[in-house]
């Protein structure tokens, strides 16, 4: 089940510039776990894994641009 952003904006993998990423590629994530943020016009929305599994790969880089429906990360 891939993780998709419903919103357009800028994708962040970390909660803050000096922070550790929410998750790394290869990490096991729980259903509902936050894997990143999307900023749209200064409002931040969390991007969550819908189901549990292993996050194989991010398709959007940190600070990358997302459009609605874009796959942010591939899950196993």
């Amino acid at each position: 089940m891939d993780i998709i952003s419903p919103l357009p904006g800028v994708f962040y993998r970390k909660p803050g510039p000096d922070k550790e990423p929410y998750v790394k590629e290869g990490d096991t994530v729980a259903a509902g776990q936050t894997i990143g943020l999307v900023e749209i016009m200064k409002q931040f929305s969390e991007v969550r894994a819908e189901s549990a599994g292993v996050l194989l790969e991010f398709k959007i880089d940190d600070f990358g641009i997302v459009n609605p429906g874009d796959v942010v990360a591939v899950m196993e």
Binding site: L7, P8, G9, V10, E39, I40, M41, K42
Partner: peptide, 11 residues
């Protein structure tokens, strides 16, 4: 009119 409002900045 005709311009786009980008999602990256203040509203």
């Amino acid at each position: 009119a005709g311009k786009s409002v980008a999602p990256y900045y203040d509203s």
